[in-house]
């Protein structure tokens, strides 16, 4: 049976750990010709330069060839072809499909239609599992473990798919503690808090972004996006409350690291960049190693 990666929960804890192990291996030795003679389709029905370059670099470093499109205007999708037909055709040509699509559930559907593995590089506001795995690899690298992590999530916890997936994945490990810092209108949805409660995992909710972060091992920042608010006044009230600056990091633990899925707008002040606790640029580089690992895992290359 072929293996796909559509949602983070498709993988077991053992598979998370296997990917971490492979990512470390690729970090030590990024150029391995494991995809030699293989063709990977990179289908971006919605542009995302950052994710696409990360994937395509990973494929190149594995020695694979790439076909596909970077933007929907050049794709058959805009000429009225269904996703079904595009995937049927491409899965005849390629050995693996990496796809990003603006509609939710598109990757799951593609996986049903395709005869070759599908890696979901984002399906609307639903899932972006490779981001979660690179976040986990970043946590593992900076903390030496995925157990006993006190993880602070800050900003838009309601619509932010990255924090939801990271919460689900990290709840598989020993004794995590979650701290949610968000305005009332953007709090962590009930379903995810319920997920933690079922597993007896501790979490705390805060509206104020204060020195409570002195307990953090990881501070995961997200963007508070204007378009999420039905009331513009509400946005004005909260937009500058959830900004991290260098001074706020003074009394934090020495091992704390600041993560962000990027791109940032203003939620991390630029003075944080020079702090040894800033990790978001390294996190992006970890993405390439993690994607080499994910490709190897779904295609059984190693």
């Amino acid at each position: 049976m072929k293996k796909d990666l559509i949602s983070i929960t498709d993988f077991s804890k053992e598979e998370y750990l296997r990917i971490m192990e492979l990512a470390a291996d690729f970090e030590a030795n990024p150029n391995q010709e494991l995809l030699k003679g293989k063709v990977v389709a990179s289908l971006f029905f919605e542009p995302s330069t950052r994710t696409r370059l990360s994937f395509e670099t990973a494929i190149n470093r594995l020695g694979g060839r790439i076909v596909g499109f970077a933007d929907p205007d050049s794709s058959s999708a805009t000429k009225g072809e269904t996703l079904h037909d595009t995937i049927r055709m491409v899965s005849n040509y390629a050995d693996l499909i990496v796809m990003r699509h603006p509609l939710e559930g598109a990757a799951r559907y593609a996986a049903e239609v395709s005869s070759v593995p599908i890696i979901n590089a984002g399906d609307g506001a639903n899932q972006h599992p490779t981001q979660t795995l690179l976040d986990m690899y970043s946590i593992l690298k900076t903390q030496g473990t995925l157990d006993n992590i006190n993880l602070f999530m800050v900003g838009d916890l309601k619509f932010g798919r990255t924090v939801h997936s990271l919460l689900q994945a990290m709840s598989e490990f020993e004794n995590p503690i979650f701290n949610f810092i968000a305005p009332e209108s953007l709090q962590m949805p009930r379903a995810y808090k319920h997920h933690l409660e079922e597993r007896g995992i501790r979490y705390f909710e805060h509206e104020e972004f204060t020195d409570i972060i002195s307990e953090a091992d990881i501070i995961y920042m997200t963007r508070v996006q204007k378009e999420r608010f039905s009331d513009p006044m509400e946005y004005e009230k909260v937009k500058d409350v959830y900004i991290l600056n260098k001074a706020m990091l003074e009394n934090t633990k020495p091992n704390v690291r600041v993560l962000h899925p990027l791109p940032r707008v203003n939620e991390i002040a630029t003075d944080v960049d020079s702090s040894e606790k800033a990790y978001y640029f390294d996190q992006a580089l970890n993405g390439m190693f993690t994607r080499e690992a994910i490709i190897s895992h779904v295609m059984n290359l190693k």
Partner: peptide
Amino acid sequence: FNPKCITNHEKI
């Protein structure tokens, strides 16, 4: 119910 769900855009 999700208007952005693939099932509301393609015959699935």
